[in-house]
């Protein structure tokens, strides 16, 4: 099998590779509409529905001139007839130049990348990895802070099950961050990630309160949703559910550069009065997903940063 350019996780990427992909995404932000992928076919296989991620990937492919095939609902596939994932991937590999896939099973994207020469981009495998989300998070952090180095990053809410915070933590290891884990006891950062921090010399503190004084130290406030269904003790949920809701009144002491991120969808963990606050960045963050995904698709298809910089197919 030739070199496998698939993107399954960002955890093992070097600092140089991450910076390279972020530079490529920045080029796409300058000129998002091009014909550089004209003639290419991108397959989006969503074995688990995810409208937001799918639309973002399909927009990225379309804005670069590629054509898109695929399915948004696994009920329409032969998987319902009992076809194996391997067979589905083998079949689609005959048609597409790159496969973007979301699957409800963990490890599905890695396995898919082992059964085909066509590069796979993991658009989420169960609760395991979601590298394009991490890439857009890092792009957003870099863009708003001007750097990825030496930042105070507060991760708030569900740190136990939230895969985006786990992936971000691992990908940031090259950049000397200080993390602050703010979560209810039931949803605190799992031991294996604290161990990961120790092994990679990542500083972190832990807390159970989100308030004005805590927020004033943050460069990045990364909010996630505290979900009722994650609690075994519903009284505990009732006690803590309002403790992790961010309102505009809590931002008075925030540093000027502080930005609020959220992987979305948001339910009630950020009040609507924050949306117009200059610290709010979650909607722009989602837009950055387009550029990050344009970069990932181009990279797996073997286009280099120089190809993107010297691209003559830009649509002005």
């Amino acid at each position: 099998m030739s070199e496998n350019r698939s993107v399954i996780t960002l955890a093992n990427l070097t600092r140089e590779k991450i910076e390279y992909l972020l530079k490529m995404a920045a080029e796409f932000e300058r000129h998002p509409n091009r014909r550089i992928l004209e003639g290419k076919v991108v397959a989006t296989l969503f074995f688990e529905p995810s409208t937001r991620t799918r639309l973002s990937f399909e927009t990225a492919a379309n804005r670069l001139g590629a054509r898109v095939i695929g399915f948004a609902d696994p009920k329409v596939t032969s998987g319902t007839k009992g076809e194996s994932l391997k067979d589905t991937i083998k079949m689609v590999s005959n048609y597409a130049d790159v496969i973007v896939m979301r699957h409800y099973l963990e490890g599905a994207a890695l396995y898919a990348s082992e059964v085909t020469d066509v590069p796979i981009i993991n658009a989420g495998d169960g609760s395991n990895q979601h590298p394009s989300q991490t890439m857009l998070d890092m792009y957003s952090i870099n863009k708003t802070q001007g750097t990825l180095d030496n930042l105070n990053i507060f991760l708030v809410g569900d740190l136990k099950y939230g895969r985006t915070v786990h992936s971000l933590l691992m990908a940031m290891r090259h950049f000397n961050p200080t993390f602050h884990f703010i979560a209810p006891k039931e949803l605190e950062m799992p031991e294996e990630y604290k161990l990961y921090c120790h092994q990679n010399e990542i500083r972190f503190t832990e807390g159970t309160e989100l308030n004005e004084d805590v927020i004033q130290e943050a460069d990045i406030l990364y909010m996630t949703r505290v979900q009722k269904e994650r609690f075994t003790d519903l009284m505990e949920y009732e006690r803590v559910k309002d403790a992790f809701i961010l309102g505009a009144d809590m931002l008075a002491k925030a540093k000027d550069n502080m930005k609020i991120l959220h992987p979305l969808p948001r339910i009630n963990e950020i009040k609507a009065d924050v949306d117009d606050n200059p610290h709010a960045y979650y909607f722009q963050q989602a837009q950055n997903g387009l550029y990050a995904r344009e970069a990932l698709i181009s990279d797996v298809l073997n286009y280099t940063l120089d190809d993107i910089i010297n691209d003559h197919t830009i649509i002005q």
Partner: peptide, 27 residues
């Protein structure tokens, strides 16, 4: 995925002493 697809399993031994392994696929 290994429990839902006709395929092999692979585990990496993380710690021989405390006998902990990590699934190659779901991690």
């Amino acid at each position: 995925i290994t429990n839902n697809e006709p395929m092999h399993t692979i585990f990496h031994i993380i710690d021989k002493h405390s006998r902990v392994m990590r699934c190659h696929y779901c991690e």
